[in-house]
């Protein structure tokens, strides 16, 4: 499979660039929208939440941005990725190419978006006076874990969505709920102690915490729990590839 995907690397490349550039083609701000969107979201939360939560988190906006941008990567990929086979039904029925390219290019374009938006994080770190620390060297590891996790999820959901179209809506709702079950707007300490295990069941909790530890608290990320999530994501990816491989044979007929 890997060899075949390598042969089709140009398709992967042009798919990724189509994903990034094509989405906003024709709009005035163009690609900038993919950064303006999460920033506006941050702005809304930064205005609303301090009122409700009486949050005493210092540098709350920076605290938010660090978590919202990777979360934005997570949700966009899951929303777009789940329907990516359905949307490309036209080509799937007409041309042969390794179908794995489609989910991979969605996750990869999300990754590139996130990498670019890291510049925004840097900007906030500088402006808030928090600055940087050597712990940034752990960033690639955290990004890699999130990439594997997303790929695993998308392989499964995109293949299932071809057969059961409800999957898309169920998953979108689930992701929306998960937003509140992930320490993005709050820090995990605000969660009641006896409920915190529930929060920790969510792999995104570990990942978001790791981003915060690197950028905001300037400490080493919790490598032990990151490793657990890495193992979980790898297993998920393994089964994801298996499921996708089995289901892809029926794509052209089901669509």
């Amino acid at each position: 499979m890997i060899e075949e995907i390598y042969n089709y690397r140009q398709l992967l490349k042009s798919n990724v660039s189509k994903e990034i550039r094509g989405k906003y083609k024709g709009s005035f701000l163009g690609v900038l929208w993919s950064f303006v969107n999460p920033l506006l979201m941050t702005l809304v939360y930064a205005i609303v939440f301090p009122f409700i939560l009486k949050s005493t988190q210092p540098h709350y906006v920076t605290f938010l941005v660090i978590a919202i941008l990777p979360w934005n990567w997570f949700t966009t990929v899951i929303n777009q990725g789940t329907s990516c086979i359905n949307i490309n039904g036209g080509i799937i029925k007409k041309v042969y190419f390794p179908r794995e390219i489609l989910p991979i290019s969605i996750v990869t374009s999300g990754l590139i978006n996130y990498l670019i938006s890291c510049l925004i994080i840097c900007l906030f770190l500088i402006c808030s006076g928090l600055g940087f620390s050597i712990n940034i060297i752990f960033l690639p590891i955290v990004i890699m874990v999130q990439y594997i996790l997303l790929l695993g999820i998308i392989f499964i959901t995109s293949a299932i969505n071809v057969y059961i179209k409800d999957a898309e809506y169920i998953i979108n709702f689930f992701v929306l709920m998960l937003f509140y079950g992930t320490p993005i707007l709050y820090s995990p300490e605000l969660f009641p102690e006896n409920m915190r295990w529930l929060l920790n069941l969510n792999p995104m909790t570990t990942i978001i915490n790791a981003y915060r530890e690197i950028f905001y608290y300037k400490t080493n990320p919790n490598l032990k729990s990151l490793f657990v999530v890495f193992i979980f994501s790898s297993i998920l990816l393994y089964f994801g590839i298996k499921i996708f491989k089995k289901l892809k044979k029926g794509f052209a007929e089901e669509l």
Partner: peptide, 24 residues
């Protein structure tokens, strides 16, 4: 199949040919 209407003919050549598995 797979032409993107907003891209130019030249860009679509690249995109379409890549679907057939050609490298850049």
């Amino acid at each position: 199949a797979g032409f993107h209407p907003d891209f130019t003919g030249r860009e679509n050549i690249y995109f379409n040919a890549s679907i057939f598995g050609l490298s850049a």
